[in-house]
Design a protein around this nucleic acid. Structure first.
Length: 275
DNA sequence: AGGCAGGCTTTTA
DNA sequence: TAAAAGCCTGCC
């Protein structure tokens, strides 16, 4: 099916934004917007942008309405969220948001997001992707997309628990493998319930996530933003720390930007990382 | 009590 | 060799 989106849906930008690690770029002939396979839970979507504002999706209307519309956060108007920032008020954020037009905060699966961001700590993005890909290949289910290509689903907690030591080692998780195992165990046994976190306020969800070993403030904030889709969560990583130190010496006006702190954080993250 | 140094696996640039 | 979408432990 086809959809039309006015603005703020740039597939290449989102794919490289560091919020999702399993989008796969598919070969494409001169398509400016790129073509991607986007896996989520037991589904995957192939999406491409044949022309300005037009997108081709390999799913039914029903599936789009029930799953992918929410996944791409298409019920939020990012263009008007960007326009809340006044150049005179906050020139740095204004510039970052202008450059970031096209980004969106995806609404990803909470479990996959939790494990992915535990893996992400103290590593760069290519290394994160490699670990996750190996993990899915060894513990996920074999699947085929609508074009017949093979891919693997993200493993459930039980799948991770049944991995052999040498399989875990092959994922090159380093000291994080213990964190992954303990988290999988807690979730599988019902001692940690991600559904509870979904119904919490952002700050409350972050505190709850931090009860997991290996989940600190930064990882919990990322999971809350990218997996629980609480758009006010504001992850502070090494890049945002630099932004706050260099551009907001007198303090960052977080209260002013509620409830969209997470979106603005993403603009600043991309902007500073690119520089 | 809350803050800080040091250590941790491995890959990437 | 330092840095990478950091966190834990132990010490003060």
């Amino acid at each position: 099916m086809e959809i039309s989106v006015k603005d703020d849906l740039n597939l290449n930008m989102i794919a490289n934004s560091g919020q999702c690690f399993r989008w796969e770029a598919l070969p494409v002939s001169q398509k400016e917007g790129g073509k991607f396979r986007v896996p989520m839970r037991d589904k995957c979507l192939i999406i491409e942008q044949p022309s300005e504002n037009e997108y081709e999706l390999d799913c039914s209307e029903e599936e789009y309405e029930s799953i992918w519309k929410e996944y791409f956060d298409l019920n939020n108007d990012y263009s008007s969220i960007r326009k809340r920032i006044k150049k005179k008020d906050d020139p740095f954020l204004y510039e970052a948001a202008s450059k970031g037009a096209g980004l969106r905060i995806l609404h990803q699966d909470p479990w996959e997001t939790l494990i992915s961001f535990i893996i992400s700590q103290n590593r760069n993005i290519p290394a994160i992707k490699k670990s996750i890909e190996t993990l899915c290949g060894l513990a996920g289910k074999e699947k085929k997309d609508s074009e017949g290509r093979l891919y693997y689903s993200f493993p459930e907690p039980e799948d991770i628990l049944s991995m052999k030591d040498e399989e875990m080692a092959a994922c090159k998780l380093g000291y994080r493998d213990e964190y992954i195992m303990l988290t999988a165990k807690k979730v599988a046994e019902g001692d940690f319930d991600l559904n509870k976190a979904i119904s919490m306020e952002a700050d409350e969800a972050i505190d709850y996530l931090m009860t997991l070993k290996g989940v600190g403030l930064k990882v919990a904030s990322c999971v809350t933003l990218f997996g629980l889709h609480k758009l006010d969560a504001f992850p502070v990583d090494v890049w945002i720390k630099k932004v706050l130190e260099n551009e907001y010496k007198k303090g960052y006006p977080k209260e002013k930007y509620t409830p969209y702190n997470g979106i603005y954080q993403q603009y600043m993250f991309e902007y500073y990382r690119a520089k």
